[in-house]
Design a protein around this nucleic acid. Structure first.
Length: 421
RNA sequence: GGAGACGUCGCAUAGUUCGGCCUAGUGCACCACCCUGCUAAGGUGGAGAACCCUUAAUGGGUUCCGUGGGUUCAAAUCCCACCGUCUCCGCCA
């Protein structure tokens, strides 16, 4: 939910953001009209209600013989109140529907346009050079006994995998390395529920246009989360937070489920894009004025992870049209994947400013004692997909893979992963 | 899954019998001030959330007693459904 004050005082800013995203600009005017209609409806209802309340007191205080007559009068008033109340409820619902579909206004500097219109912020590390034909991550995974797609498909269908042996250990190692770094950064670890209620899913913005990306369990009306961001944001829903001691930072560890409904035949090979994977997610609740600094901080943790793992990567400032509706800015860190000759997203960090918090009703107390929405930010710290970049980047001619120094402690000291007999 | 008890503005509670004196009382904690020569005790006052109108500050109104419906002129209070907590029983990886 956007800031109503901004919508009323500076609708042009919202219009500009909508345009940059390629979203409807007219929506802004519909929302403004609905806001006016809603306020009118509320006022008439409240005035009627006030008279009804006053009248009710007269009825209560009246002597018995007059009561009959007063009650008769009150009945017509009650009918009016009921109608006005319904009108106000309807107007409110329409307003919420319209305002709720306006995306978070983008921050200054976010490029307009779609997926290809990102701004490249930096490129770090040397792309690996091979004097042999490099194998892709699935070839390596099979050679090393790390990935079994065939059995994944047998048990669960396409885009499911088994991580086997060293593959399973590799995933846990990456996740644990991320967790240790998160702990060092003051993040509180959380193992989160992966089934959540509709209102939490909606509050985090995942039931909007991309709701077909989400698994739903109709028997229980619960949703499988595609990221622990959902549970992490819902964690403090409807609360007034005390941020005087600094931001609240959490690291959520969870399995993530995605239908990949829109991704057709893309990335069908290997574990780049699968229905189920694990992820360690950072999540921060901060004062609005600290949101942009926190965003840089989250990006910093992500870059440190990739650097420690010896990966070559670039950082992009995602274009407006490629942002989720809750995000006002998003940085992706993309690792170089040699066999694809391309950078592929390993992490993503979004600054949701106060948008998500407003919808989830997460507030703090200002110095004047009023409540105001906090800002929320999220960012990936580790996922299953990292295995792809690690295997491909550190492979050798015989199919073995050198384990980056930083990861060795998490693999019981293993320095080299070798093909199995 | 079955039976029962419970859910009140930070915490703890009163109020639900029998709908209207509830504009939801009280205690603790909290804030300001006063008093007392010390961090104790006491006194006075303040103080919940959301929304609407109004203003320079302000002031006024409406809603909120787990959630959503219903009955009624009027609901914390009566009815229904749902959610949650606890106790017991059953079932189960």
């Amino acid at each position: 939910m956007i800031d109503l004050q901004l919508l009323r005082d500076n609708p042009d800013a919202v219009r500009a953001s909508q345009a940059a995203r390629g979203d409807s600009v007219d929506l802004v005017d519909s929302a403004l009209a609905a806001d006016a209609a809603r306020r009118n409806a509320i006022s008439s209802f409240e005035n009627l209600r006030a008279s009804q309340n006053a009248f009710g007191k007269r009825v209560a205080a009246a002597p018995k013989e007059e009561k009959q007559q007063l009650v008769a009068q009150a009945q017509s008033l009650a009918a009016e109140v009921k109608a006005a109340s319904q009108a106000a409820t309807d107007a409110e619902a329409e307003f919420v529907r319209l305002v709720g579909s306006i995306a978070n206004p983008i921050l200054g500097g976010v490029p307009a346009g779609g997926e290809d219109d990102f701004v490249l912020l930096k490129t770090v590390g040397e792309k690996p050079e091979f004097d042999f034909e490099p194998r892709d991550h699935l070839q390596l995974g099979e050679l090393l006994g790390a990935i079994d797609m065939g059995r994944g498909a047998k048990v669960s269908g396409a885009r499911f995998s088994f991580l086997t042996g060293i593959g399973a250990r590799l995933e846990l190692a990456i996740m644990n390395m991320g967790l240790d770094r998160a702990l060092a950064g003051g993040f509180i670890p959380l193992i989160t529920p992966t089934l959540v209620k509709p209102e939490i899913m909606r509050g985090t913005g995942f039931l909007g246009e991309h709701s077909d990306e989400v698994y739903h369990l109709p028997a229980d009306d619960l949703y499988l989360t595609g990221t622990s961001e959902v549970a992490l944001a819902g964690f403090h829903a409807d609360e007034i937070l005390d941020l005087t001691g600094g931001p609240l930072r959490y690291a959520g560890w969870s399995t993530c489920y995605r239908r990949e409904a829109g991704s057709g035949g893309k990335d069908t090979r290997g574990i780049i894009r699968v229905h189920q994977f694990n992820k360690l997610e950072m999540f921060s609740y901060v004062l609005p004025e600290n949101a942009e600094a926190e965003h840089e901080r989250l990006l910093g943790y992500q870059e440190e992870m990739l650097r420690a793992l010896g990966l070559s990567y670039r950082v992009i400032d995602t274009a407006a049209g490629d942002l989720g509706s809750s995000a006002a800015r998003k940085y992706d860190v993309e690792a170089w994947v040699p066999t694809q000759g391309a950078y592929r997203e390993l992490t993503s960090t979004s600054n949701c400013t106060t948008y998500q918090a407003r919808r989830l009703d997460i507030r703090y107390r200002t110095e004047s004692g009023k409540t105001a929405p906090v800002a929320t930010l999220n960012g990936t710290l580790a996922t299953t997909r990292w295995i792809v970049a690690i295997l491909e980047t550190h492979q050798r001619v015989d199919g073995s893979v050198v384990v980056p120094d930083a990861l060795r402690p998490y693999l019981g000291g293993v320095e080299l992963i070798e093909p199995i007999g």
